[in-house]
Design a binder for these strands. Structure first.
Lengths: 330, 330
DNA sequence: GAGTTCCATGCAACCGGTTGCATGTCAAGT
DNA sequence: ACTTGACATGCAACCGGTTGCATGGAACTC
């Protein structure tokens, strides 16, 4: 049967090597302070005993535990896994571990997670936070914070500017002759949603296009599907959805209602997370989630290093990826 | 500008409340040992100072830090997010936090992550581990471990028995008149892959069906797509793919080669992660990933509670979900 | 009213490291 | 030969809690 080995401590290593505990500590953290022979002797003893430094103890005395937290609203949304993956990779490069939190789009849960993480992490990345500005500011007062897709003065943030891509989407639709389009909006407390809606309205009004907004409440397949009746009721000939998931739901809803895409109706998604794998392949606005994850963590680690908070605002541009769900208006 | 608040310690609270440090500690951990008045006095003082117990210090003296690790091979594979989400929810119920690790299907990375996590977590869940049995056994000697989709004697494990569903899939194809089918296999070090291949062969031989195996190497869209030539070369009329992602790739590859599904070729996936959203909707073997995540964490927390390792083998049955990618053989 | 119990609280050691300062040694400087 | 300094190492306090044991007073017993 399997039995557990108990921890070897620094004292045991010190005894075995015939030195003081402090020397063992230094052998691991600042070997340059010791003579090379002492270091090797200590290392040999440590190896023989199977010594592994105790992370917790080290964290207690240094105040640094080498963890950062990452909180996302919905891990199952394909926008996030690449972001998480990139964040983890970047953290790894500096020997940091990632605590992952999933809030299920619920600000209460988010607050709770932040509280639980604080004290175990040196800093936090909040991706697409659903918290109010005040709560975020409050948290930022407790520990280093970097935001993704949330634009608050004084707090370092990485923004995926879907505005640029959305503008191209509207221009694309205009060129195809669409004069009346729908924006299928996402979560009301989402910064990206606000940004996209604003960008669409601005672009449309410049091109003489009418935009109606149909709410989808959540960013999900089902809310997209449920929004279809309302979308068709507007008399529009094309729609831009808050994200690809919503668009996919709209696609399904349209197909159920025998409205074929793109011949009867044009559809554009956002985030380009499944563009190539829907049928027809979805025209979408590119995302930069991988970069966002990487940059956010790298920014955070910088802050931890320098102990300074710079007011960084890192913007990532996007563009339209045209596939098969858009065509000329009838 | 934002400034950080420094930590309030137990001593400050003790001074403010006019008691010993130990009393403050007990007020938070074992209030029944103190008189109610003392507890309220301490709590009031703590509140006033904004005291929050230091997680690290507590962990050091108790040896319990309330974290468990979860390691998966690929976050971006849609099989895992629901599992992760469920694991997190379950951990949350007991006030545990989840450390997430992503190995990118790389055993080296997995080993490294386990090492880095050990010492910060009380236990570990390895989902679809790509490590060798020996490595897993070695890790299990260091800390409590629960496996998902990996069957090793003596180590608690949660198994999604796709065998039952795969058997149904083969029977389904047999009933439709297919006599020659392909199994598009997944990662060679995947337990699920082995299980599925075995189940298919067993079921097929009982029904007088010929099975050819075509390797897809990784569980991904692209490997599925690349496998299509080899699949068609076998002359089979139907295929079962290692997972839905692979199936989706196969679907795309077939469509590029003008082989239409299901009229020319029948296809079945596994894990049912995107069945309803492909076109045509994919027939697939159901998954139980949410339950697997939940059960694994709950098992792990049990182990931590009781300090005992029981040889648990928790099996979750699956079944075939018929949609639109299968039809009678020509 | 003295002896016994019980309860609330304090004392101090401990968890396993880190680190400022003191000490001792040896070589270089004059 | 004596001072000076650099360097390697040890000592002990500290990080912020937890916990076994001791203590003192109140309540209870006879």
């Amino acid at each position: 049967m399997i039995k557990r080995t108990k921890g070897v401590t620094i004292s045991q290593v010190a005894d075995a090597a015939g030195v003081a505990r402090s020397s063992v500590s230094r052998a691991f953290t600042r070997p340059d302070m010791l003579s090379p022979e002492t270091v090797t002797r200590i290392m040999k003893a440590a190896e023989a005993l199977g010594y592994v430094p105790n992370h917790t103890a080290r964290a207690l005395s240094t105040g640094r535990h080498g963890n950062v937290g990452l909180i996302v609203p919905d891990i199952a949304n394909p926008f996030f896994p690449p972001l998480i993956q990139a964040a983890q990779l970047e953290a790894d490069r500096s020997d940091f571990c990632i605590f992952l939190g999933n809030t299920e789009e619920n600000p209460k849960q988010e607050d709770k997670l932040v509280g639980r993480f604080a004290g175990q992490v040196e800093g936090l990345v909040l991706a697409s936070s659903r918290l109010s500005d005040e709560r975020i500011r409050a948290h930022a007062g407790q520990l280093p914070l970097v935001l993704i897709n949330r634009d608050i003065d004084g707090i370092p943030r990485v923004l995926i500017d879907s505005g640029s891509g959305v503008r191209q989407a509207v221009e694309h639709l205009a060129k195809l002759g669409h004069r009346r389009i729908v924006y299928v909006s996402g979560p009301s407390n989402s910064w990206s949603n606000k940004q996209r809606r604003t960008a669409i309205k601005a672009a449309a009004s410049g091109l003489g296009i009418v935009v109606e907004t149909v709410p989808a409440v959540l960013a999900s397949y089902n809310s997209g599907r449920n929004a279809v009746s309302a979308i068709l009721a507007t008399g529009a000939t094309a729609a831009v959805a808050f994200d690809d998931l919503t668009a996919q739901g709209v696609l399904a809803g349209l197909s159920e209602k025998r409205v074929s895409v793109p011949s009867d109706f044009s559809l554009i998604g956002c985030d380009d997370v499944l563009g190539a794998v829907t049928y027809p392949a979805l025209t979408s606005v590119s995302n930069r989630s991988t970069e966002a994850g990487r940059v956010a963590v790298s920014l955070l680690l910088d802050m931890l290093q320098s102990r300074a908070i710079r007011d960084v605002r890192y913007v990532l541009e996007t563009h339209l990826v045209v596939r098969n769900t858009t065509t000329a208006a009838r």
